[in-house]
Design a protein around this nucleic acid. Structure first.
Lengths: 205, 205
DNA sequence: TAGGCCATGTAATGTGTTACATGATTAG
DNA sequence: CTAATCATGTAACACATTACATGGCCTA
């Protein structure tokens, strides 16, 4: 049900489906994703339910645009959602599921490669978020307590991403270290190999 | 597509839909959730696609049970998934969406209440994970590098939850502190109120 | 004898993804 | 002239949630 509410939240100003799609790729993408092909029918549904009204307008560039506006009913629905409990508990981590079952590959090196790939993905993501944070701090200053209302809330959401992804990178490092400790007895195998080599040399003496 | 793969992963031993439902409520719930009403049709679909085979057996207690077994094709599909890239990027945080738009309520106290509720939820969740971790450490020892293959991977997945949720609690604290700094000028409002009161006293003098 | 566990599912609805289809305007 | 951006959607399929329906066996 959240996409509905996100669209309502985005529609403090009237906007088209296309505009909303852009809003997703700019800000909202940090905590939610949606394609235009999902946004258009959702807007239509919200209008049918009386949450939105729309009018068609000519566009300065390109085809006619359908501009949606929040109705009183829609605003009430949005506020109800915001006043409700935090919507927790539906998070799903596909990559954790992979890791959980990865012993089936019977090769810890594959797990290591997996964790390395994951770490590099997370690192890139974290860098993005930090860049956004840097921009915000550059324009609004270092103390979010002094930001405007919207800015404060947006910054808080951003900070969660930074905390959360940062902790996941730390977890990758911890896990990689454990894998390497696990792999360490391979040094013994290496040592055994050197012993072999030594024996071969020995009988030449 | 992940539920399919999780079911395949769980089926290293033959099991019924009901058994798999229990596995979900025991271990898997930490990174994925699914109801029996979703599991049954999914198993049927996997059988139609040749990933599983099933036979009906009498049950020691209760009605007949349909026992599913992984086929070679199913095993190949599972291994392919495990060898693939980490499945990242589809995470959605409904509560972040709420926070992001919460300035619409025009009352930072509501945001504070929201963050407090979220923090208490996360704290309880973290306590659960730590309890599980405690049990594991008690039976298998402190260094996961020495666990069996399955144990090692399960522990790694658990550790991510602990890192990630721990960091979110820290984020809640950071955000609550910022809210309180933001609320601090309310002391000025209090001071203004005292000024008012003083003026009223003054003209009595 | 009441309630919980074992065990299976269907039906209706809702949500999300992928692929396809169309076409104007503008900048290089 | 070509590619990007603006702009809207449909169709088919896949996945998820909620509610409903059934019934035996075991324990308190």
């Amino acid at each position: 049900m959240s996409l509905d509410h996100i669209l309502l939240g985005l529609l403090r100003e009237p906007a088209t489906g296309y505009d909303l799609g852009n809003a997703f790729s700019e800000n909202v993408r940090h905590f939610w994703s949606a394609e235009l092909s999902q946004i258009y029918p959702t807007l239509k549904r919200l209008e049918q339910r009386g949450m939105l009204s729309s009018r068609v307008e000519p566009s300065p560039k390109g085809p006619n645009r359908r501009v949606y506006t929040l109705t009183d009913e829609g605003r009430a629905e949005l506020l109800g959602w915001l006043r409700g409990d935090p919507a927790v508990g539906t998070e799903r981590f596909a990559y954790l599921a992979q890791l959980y079952f990865m012993d089936a590959l019977g090769d810890i090196h594959q797990t290591r490669a997996f964790m390395t790939a994951l770490r590099s993905h997370l690192t890139r993501w974290l860098a993005q978020l930090r860049a956004v944070e840097h921009d915000v701090v550059a324009t609004h200053g270092g103390d979010p307590a002094r930001y405007g209302d919207a800015g404060f809330h947006h910054f808080a959401a951003l900070r969660m991403g930074i905390h959360s992804i940062g902790s996941k990178v730390a977890w990758c490092d911890e896990t990689l270290a454990a894998i390497d400790r696990r792999l360490a007895p391979a040094h013994d195998a290496g040592a055994a190999a050197r012993d072999e080599a030594w024996k071969e040399m020995e009988h030449l003496l």
